[in-house]
């Protein structure tokens, strides 16, 4: 049976632990990765869009898709987040123009805002590789290679998912999987105003200083240039072909 054969090959490829080597394609044709590059999308709208795409991906109505966008300033509270972890009052947040959204993802309180490149890959991992750890490493690797292209030396920190420069976090990850279809993804600080992070993290904990490409390089970066590198690396690592690119300023 053809499919059974395919899965054997997959299995052998995935026997390399911790590797982020893309799988050998079992068919001659590369599957595409469609990219939507959007401007500012409010968090809830983006979440609804993701959910719609996830359902479509499950039904195989769309190809693997990457959403690239920015959020207006927003603090998202994961399911386990406690209100007291917000350091600022609702009034202060309102004055700073920050929305607070309760998200159904797991995890902590986090901040998204202008200058931060958000990537939401909607991928069917069952067709790529059924391995969440591998997937996390792929996202990290794509960001590390992108950083390198931009002149930033970024690394992994063992035990702490995300991408780090000099032990400050430049990109964070949060992934949701439903029947091997991924949603949520990564947030990469390009030109983010880092002072926003003060509203949430008990910043003092030196474990989690944040940084941005801008801070590392001393100059702001053009998002579209970063996107080009990122899409290329991500598609390459996932064994996908760059598909259609949709640019929409919403």
């Amino acid at each position: 049976m053809h499919s059974a054969e395919g899965s054997t090959i997959r299995h052998q490829a995935s026997a390399v632990p911790q590797s982020w080597i893309p799988l050998p394609q079992t068919s001659d044709e590369l599957r595409p990765l469609d990219v939507f590059s959007l401007d500012f999308v409010p968090y809830n709208d983006a979440w609804n869009l993701q959910r719609m795409l996830v359902e479509k991906r499950k039904r195989n109505e769309i190809a693997d898709t990457l959403l690239l966008l920015e959020h207006p300033p927003v603090i998202t509270m994961g399911r386990n987040a406690k209100p007291e972890n917000l350091l600022s009052t609702p009034l202060e947040l309102q004055q700073a123009g920050i929305e607070v959204v309760e998200s159904d993802r797991g995890g902590d309180v986090t901040f998204h805002g202008p200058g931060q490149l958000i990537g939401y890959p909607i991928l069917d991992l069952s067709k790529i590789r059924r391995d969440v750890v591998w997937y996390v490493r792929v996202l990290e690797e794509a960001i590390i290679r992108t950083a390198q292209d931009c002149g930033v030396r970024a690394v992994r920190v063992p035990g702490c998912p995300g991408v780090w420069v000099n032990n400050a976090k430049v990109a964070s990850l949060g992934i949701h999987i439903s029947r091997w279809v991924t949603s949520h993804g990564f947030a990469l600080n390009l030109n983010t105003d880092l002072n926003f992070f003060c509203h949430i993290i008990p910043c003092g904990i030196a474990s989690c200083p944040v940084t941005s490409f801008q801070q590392c390089l001393g100059k702001p970066l053009d998002r579209s240039v970063v996107e080009q590198h990122l899409v290329q690396h991500l598609a390459g690592l996932l064994g996908l072909e760059k598909g259609e690119l949709w640019q929409r300023m919403s």
Binding site: N80, A81, K82, E84, N85, D108, V109, V157, P158, G159, C160, I201, P202, I205, A206, S207, C208
Partner: peptide, 20 residues
């Protein structure tokens, strides 16, 4: 009692440092 975010970060950092 679930850990506060500060507690989690301290925990993560301590273990990360020991490993590093």
């Amino acid at each position: 009692v679930p850990m506060t975010i500060m507690r989690k970060r301290i925990a993560e950092h301590m273990v990360m440092s020991r490993r590093t």
